[in-house]
Design a protein around this nucleic acid. Sequence first.
DNA 1: AACTCACTCAACCGCACGGGA
DNA 2: ATCCCGTGCGGTTGAGTGAGT
Length: 337
Amino acid sequence: MGRSPCCDQDKGVKKGPWMPEEDYKLVAYIDKNGYGKWRSLPNIAGLNRCGKSCRLRWMNYLRPDIRRGEFTEEEESTVVKLHALLGNKWSKIASHLPGRTDNEIKNYWNTHMRKKMLQMGIDPITHEPKTNDLSPILDVSQMLAAAIGNGQFGNNTLFNNNIAVEDLLKLQLIHKMLQIITPKAMPNTNSFNTNSLDTKPVANNIKTNPVNPKPEQAAGQLNAIDPHVFTSQIENEDFMPSFEDAWDCFGDNQLPGLVMVSQENLNYQTGAGMMPDYYGDQLREVPSTGSISVTPETSGLNYPGTTQHSSGSNVQEDWEKFLDDETSDSCWKSFLE
DNA sequence: AACTCACTCAACCGCACGGGA
DNA sequence: ATCCCGTGCGGTTGAGTGAGT
């Protein structure tokens, strides 16, 4: 079925930004005659523009009820919720936001909110947490590499040895991984009994900076640690928790077993009226009866607990099994060992 | 000051859809 | 059933702008 082009290209209709006088003509015409019949409107109104262009200009810019300016948090939240429900149905989303146009919402989504969600580790398309996002791990890895490789800690023999610092950072890395996997269940960083070691600059940066730091920024974060404070504290023999101590910190009730993802577990995410508030909490609210569940497919990680897991199973056993498993002879094994 | 780069957003483009002839 | 028109929608583009070097 053929159709005539919207605008007669041969007529040399004007394109590009609208001039104030064009706006004036359009507004004056619509004030007098109302809008509609967009194809014939330009001729009648004396505009050398395509009807579509006139419509767009009116709908997206000249309409008196257009609301301009920054989106409020409420509006953002509404857009996120509606986008989760409707996808890229911008006009439908716009119908729920008085004064906002589909074009404006679309632009705002693509420039601001999409980026924001990515930084939060949320896939802007599926609205699922991006559990295969390894950036937090990479952040710590970068810091680790920067610390060990660049001799950031000065000439103190303890640091030249690097073993203690390395262990601590490994623990932090593992902790970070587990926070990704079981965000609600993890104890806070202090559970590692690292209070005696002033790691707060690093920990706080990790915690408050979801954005991937560049390598130089990561190094800068380590530089932020006052070497004098750091070395005086680290000389305390008790400062360093062992790996086993770290596991004891978790306790069975604090680190629930991981389960395979199931539709039942996911239903709460899409159920009507149960959209998570991304802005109140970076991570999805987790029903009390279930733990965040991820599969190797979705996480991109090969970690214990991704096999079917009884609720009472022992996580440490799984990790030990994981370490013994020849198939897991990977960077994780060497890393964890 | 000059230049580059990244970002924003108004506008364009192609297509789909509904309705009337 | 087919054609055509009017309109709406979503993806993409590119000029303008500001920040960084």
